[in-house]
Design a binder for these strands. Structure first.
Length: 897
RNA sequence: GGUCGCUUAGCUCAGCGGUAGAGCACCACGCUCACAUCGUGGGGGUCGCAGGUUCAAAUCCUGCAGCGACCACCA
């Protein structure tokens, strides 16, 4: 089967010297089920891989799955929760056993689903991010980065998911606009420097120092998270703020607590914003943490890992959920007259990208990668064009991110994933080894404890372009297939994944993992919403495959795949959504079957042998074929996939089916002239052969089936299967602008005859004569030779090349050629005249009525403007229709001709 | 707040300096021996609004309006 062609051994490159073309799949989550997003992503990759394979490249598409840390662990934890079990109850070892059990049982089905949509991955190379080989790569990278000082451990404010109970990277905390509240609180001033005149400060211009009923002065601070005030350890003002300069060093009483906290100066405070006083909560806000580290303010953590208030807060708040605590804090402050007011405030609230819980900034000891040095070569590669982005504007987005890159928190408090390869010895030694240690190299002790955390899923994903080839071992695969070529993915994971792969590629291989990044759009429904399980607006690709075939699904998707645009599919009418692709696949099948039948079993001569006997349509379709070939290649090269799809579609359906097949029908028939027939057969075989090749990357199944039964011209050889047949190249020998011009004229003539037939009600089955004359280049004479074609396409059985006259229909073509269709005896002219007169009279009646209506002043004055306008439009419509009919009538009276 | 993008036929969207396009939907006719998942013909758009550049603009520039995306530590 064709699957045999999917496998590409390193020897194809290293021994046979074939040029590689490598795509590594964006590995779907191991337990994922195929959705339309995959359908799009993987179809695009398959189109590219099939195309490059046909070009003779050693085209390798490496498949695999990702262990997807949090996502997968969450799934299993939910299942356990249904049984009333938590992971802590099971313990790490047992929990991991259950994880593997689940992943082994349900994992990898997505790969079978990819096969169903025709993905030609090298399945023998299927990888999983937790495979031994890949574990080795992760270990090597971690240790190596640590040794270079690019991985460090430290206590910082990180994004914390209180539900998943783990740290998140900045990218994993997704901001969402939310209409929140900005609360203004009063902190009473407790201690001021000697001689500080509070009354004067309070009276200063723009001062937000006020006075309570009991005479105590207070400062106003603002916050969107009032519960964090319990963890405040200071209040900050700008060092140059003229209003408050004198308060620096003073102390305020932190409401609801028994603590006094200092007022400090820090340049990060914007005097223009709010009151100019900033409450500082160093353990729960990254800015405040920075302020504290500069000013020496204490750190006070007031929350538990699951975001409840801890024992550091007053008893009445202990154990409260953070949002409940928020309400109580506000209520308590109001009670004490320390509530200044509130206002609505829209701001971006970060949410966990896996479970959507509001992220809590939390002071925590974590592992980080210092990114700046890694970013440098990755940034350069983009700027100097080593790596290109399609669409281009993502280059700027990428560079902006790289320029402002922040350190990456890579430790996760999960169990499912790559365990952090760090051991701690009781003696204090931190061991980061390539092989699991048995004893402490410093003290020799054997009481070693491995770091309990695992690495961010993306830490292993970022190594995918080389970890799949066995690195850090020195493998032939690495030599043959790294670096790769094209990365096809969605913009959502540009930072998560693409950017990091590039950085790792430079850091560990000295080369970018690919040279082209193609970012396709998102699959959406007709309301523009992203397809998702929770919205219930998804379409199951496999259902589409079952109902209409993989070819139909692939074509429909790719034909919408314009650079930089999303894909809209109607989940409420799946048939309509995919009818385009279904119809096309069906059309190819029918046309192919018909052609094969018409060609018969007799040997077909090579095109060269019959070159002298080719007629207009043969030369024309061969020329069209050259254009179709050139544009298909060009479009694929530039990732203009929808143009590739639509271009081949119109070539095949329009040129090949509607015109060429119709034109050669009679020539292929049993009694036809043998010379003409052989010319048609040879041409048809070439056209079909190449058309199947051009269509194959997008419509692999139908084309391969037809191609396998297509006759091979005598003396020629070809590949055994279409999947490895050579991608066509343009042959200038068959480009004929002359044939295309003449054919265009002929096509226009046919269209005009058909139109006139409809217009004058000439019965569909009846034969007619036409007169053709005028023009400059002997076109009428050419037409005379095409009687068979005219018969076939327009039911014309006689052509006169002189001017026609009498009663009939007349038209002038763009070339200046004139056409006349005699109507006497063809239709009942008298009856037609009568009918026309009736119609004209009717139109005149309507016209008069409308005119009268518009003359009615009260109507014009009172009716809505658009109604009046509609009446006016009708008037002109009637006029136009009537004048058309009058012209027609005139021609029937023998005046026009 | 910053950056970028979008606004074209009833719907979904291409086109991005030279006489308005596709698919679907719609109307009419047609069981012509590949295909009714079809064929033939047809209707339908002042290309968001207002200016400007140009011989020529849907296409370039400016402003405005509406929508959207991404980034961002203004409490």
């Amino acid at each position: 089967m064709e699957g045999g062609y999917f496998h590409v051994p390193a020897s194809a490159v290293l021994d046979e010297g074939r040029e590689p073309y490598v795509i590594v799949i964006p590995p779907p989550n191991v337990t994922a089920a195929l959705h339309m997003g995959h359908g799009l992503n993987d179809t695009v990759q398959d189109v590219l891989i099939r195309w490059r394979r046909m070009q003779g490249r050693a085209a390798l598409w490496v498949p695999g799955t990702d262990h997807a840390g949090i996502a997968t662990q969450n799934v299993v934890e939910r299942r356990l929760a249904a049984e009333g079990i938590t992971r802590d109850q099971l313990g790490r070892e047992e929990f991991l056993r259950r994880m593997w059990e689940f992943v082994t049982a349900t994992g990898g089905t997505i790969l079978d689903q990819l096969k169903a949509i025709g993905c030609s991955c090298d399945w023998e190379r299927t990888r999983f991010t937790l495979d031994d080989d890949l574990q080795r790569a992760v270990r090597e990278v971690f240790v190596s980065l640590y040794e270079k000082g690019r991985i460090y451990r430290g206590e910082y404010i990180i994004n914390w998911c209180p539900r998943c109970l783990t740290a998140l990277s900045n990218e994993e905390a997704e901001g969402e606009e939310a209409a929140g509240t900005l609360w203004h609180l009063r902190y009473p001033i407790a201690v001021v420097g000697a001689g500080t005149d509070l009354q004067r400060i309070a009276a200063a211009d723009g001062s937000r120092v006020g006075r309570l009923a009991d005479g105590t002065y207070y400062v106003v601070v603002s916050t969107t998270r009032p519960e964090t005030m319990l963890g405040d350890t200071g209040v900050a003002v700008h060092p140059k703020d003229p209003r408050y300069e004198l308060l620096i060093g003073a102390r305020v009483k932190l409401p609801l607590t028994d603590r006094d906290i200092p007022i400090v100066a820090d340049a990060a405070v914007d005097p223009e914003f709010g009151s100019g006083f900033v409450k500082v909560t160093p353990a729960h806000d990254p800015n405040d943490f920075e302020i504290a580290s500069r000013t020496g303010l204490a750190l006070l953590d007031v929350m538990t890992p699951d975001a409840h208030m801890n024992d550091a807060v007053p008893p009445e708040f202990r154990g409260l959920d953070r949002f409940e605590a928020r309400k109580r804090v506000i209520a308590a402050l109001k009670e004490q007259g320390l509530f200044e007011g509130e206002q609505t405030h829209t701001h971006a609230v970060p949410h966990c990208y896996r479970c959507h819980t509001v992220v809590e900034p939390r002071l925590s000891l974590q592992w980080f990668v210092s990114m700046k040095p890694l970013a440098e070569p990755a940034l350069r590669a983009s700027r100097d064009g080593t790596i290109t982005f399609t669409p281009k504007h993502w280059q700027r987005v990428y560079e902006h991110w790289m320029e402002n890159i922040r350190d990456w928190c890579i430790s996760r408090q999960l169990w499912w994933g790559h365990r952090i390869p760090v051991w701690y010895c009781a003696c204090g030694e931190v061991i980061v080894p390539r092989e699991d240690p048995k004893s402490c190299p410093k003290c020799g002790g054997t009481q070693l404890e491995q770091d309990p955390d695992v690495l961010d899923t993306w830490f292993s994903s970022q190594l995918w372009p080389f970890s799949v080839f066995g690195w850090p071992r020195d493998t032939d695969d690495m030599k043959a297939f790294y670096p790769g070529h094209t990365m096809v993915t969605a913009p959502e994971i540009l930072f998560f994944w693409v950017a990091r792969m590039i950085m790792m590629g430079y850091e560990f291989q000295g080369a970018a993992p690919f040279t082209e990044v193609y970012l396709h759009g998102t699959v959406r429904d007709m309301k523009g919403r992203k397809m998702s399980k929770s919205l219930g607006n998804g379409i199951d690709p496999l259902e589409v495959v079952r109902a209409y075939g993989a070819d139909a699904m692939r074509y429909t998707i790719v034909s919408q795949c314009a650079v930089g645009t999303d894909i809209a599919l109607d989940h409420e009418n799946v048939e309509a959504a995919f009818s385009n692709g279904r119809n096309f696949a069906n059309k190819i099948w029918n046309a192919g079957r018909f052609a094969l039948m018409s060609l018969g079993d007799a040997p077909v001569r090579p095109l060269e042998d019959v070159a002298d006997t080719l007629v207009l349509e043969d030369k024309w379709i061969l020329s069209r074929l050259q254009h179709a070939t050139a544009t298909a290649t060009e479009n694929l090269t530039r990732f203009r996939l929808h143009e590739y799809a639509e271009g081949t579609y119109h070539f095949f359906w329009g040129d090949v089916c509607d015109w060429y097949l119709e034109l050669v029908k009679s020539r292929l028939a049993a009694g036809a002239d043998p010379v003409s027939r052989e010319a048609a057969r040879s041409t048809l075989v070439v056209v079909l052969d190449q058309a199947m090749r051009l269509l194959h990357p997008i419509i692999p199944f139908v084309t391969a089936e037809l191609w396998s039964t297509l006759p091979v011209p005598s003396g020629e050889t070809r590949a055994d299967d279409l999947i490895v047949a050579r991608w066509p190249e343009t042959n200038p020998r068959w480009v004929s602008t002359d044939a295309e011009r003449r054919m265009a004229g002929f096509q226009e003539l046919i269209a005009e005859v058909r139109r006139l037939r409809k217009e004058y009600g000439i019965p569909e089955g009846g034969r007619i004569a036409i007169h053709v004359w005028g023009g400059a280049d002997g076109f009428p004479a050419l037409v005379r030779d095409q009687v068979a074609a005219l018969e076939q396409l327009a039911r014309v059985n006689r052509v006169e090349t002189g001017a026609g006259q009498g009663i009939g229909a007349h038209a002038v073509l763009t070339s200046g050629v004139e056409l006349f269709v005699p109507l006497e005896g063809v239709i009942d002219v008298g009856h037609e005249r009568g009918r026309l007169r009736e119609e004209i009279a009717k139109l005149e009646g309507l016209h008069a009525g409308t005119t009268k209506k518009l003359a009615n002043e009260s109507f014009v004055a009172r009716a809505p403007v658009e109604v009046v306008q509609k009446e006016r439009d009708r008037l002109t419509q009637f006029e136009e229709q009537a004048s058309k009919l009058r012209e027609k009538l005139a021609s029937l009276e023998g005046v026009g001709a």
